[in-house]
C-alpha cells in the first residue's frame, strides 16, 4: 500500500470517529434541552483539536511502521515515505475536488441557516458537519480510486 494511501486511511478514519463521538454527545444533549441552552463550544473545539492531534499521531505511527517494514524488506525508508508519484497526486487532486464540491454544497445550507437567523448551535454544527462530510467523501473517493483505478 502506498504511503499516501495509508495517510488517506488515517485521515478518513479520524474524520469518521471524532465527529461521530461529538455528534453523539450533541444529540444526547438535545434530548429535552433547547438548542439555545446547549454549550457546544468547548466540545466542538475539543473535537477539532482532537482530529488534528489524532491525524498527526496517526501520521507518525504510520511513518514509523512504514520505516520499519521498509528496513525489514531491505528498502530505504525514505523511498517508501517520500515517494509521491503522479498517480498519488492525481488521486489526491480528484478527492480534494469532490470534497470541495461537497463542502460548497454544505456552505449553501449554512448560508440558508444564517438567513433564517437560526441559533448559533445549528449554524456552527451545520458548518462542522459540512467539513466533516466533505473530508469523509474526499477520503472515500481517494480510497476507491486507489483500489478500483480511474
Amino acid at each position: 500500500m502506498p504511503f499516501e494511501e495509508k495517510m488517506t486511511w488515517v485521515s478518513g478514519v479520524v474524520t469518521m470517529i471524532v465527529p461521530v463521538v461529538y455528534f453523539a454527545i450533541m444529540i444526547g444533549r438535545l434530548q429535552g434541552t433547547p438548542a439555545t441552552d446547549i454549550h457546544f463550544q468547548t466540545p466542538l473545539i475539543v473535537a477539532i483539536v482532537a482530529s488534528v492531534v489524532l491525524t498527526i499521531v496517526g501520521a507518525i505511527v504510520i511513518s514509523i511502521g512504514t520505516s520499519i517494514t521498509a528496513t525489514i524488506h531491505g528498502r530505504k525508508p525514505e523511498d517508501e515515505i517520500d515517494r509521491k508519484d503522479e498517480r498519488d497526486k492525481t488521486i489526491s487532486r480528484r478527492g480534494d475536488l469532490i470534497g470541495y464540491y461537497v463542502a460548497s454544497a454544505g456552505m449553501v445550507g449554512v448560508l440558508i441557516l444564517t438567513m433564517l437567523e437560526a441559533d448559533y448551535f445549528w449554524i456552527a454544527n451545520a458548518l462542522y458537519l459540512s467539513f466533516v462530510v466533505a473530508m469523509a467523501v474526499s477520503s472515500a473517493v481517494k480510497l476507491v480510486a486507489y483500489h478500483r483505478g480511474f
Binding site: M1, P2, R83, D85, E86
Partner: peptide, 29 residues
C-alpha cells in the same frame, strides 16, 4: 515491479496499477 518503480521514481503500486490497466500513466511516464 519494485526495480522498475525505483528506476522511474514511482511507487510499486503505481506499476501494478498500470500493468493491470487500472491507471493510464502520463505521456511523460
Amino acid at each position: 515491479q519494485a526495480e522498475l518503480a525505483d528506476r522511474l521514481g514511482v511507487t510499486r503500486q503505481t506499476i501494478i496499477a498500470v500493468e493491470q490497466g487500472k491507471y493510464s500513466p502520463s505521456l511523460e511516464m
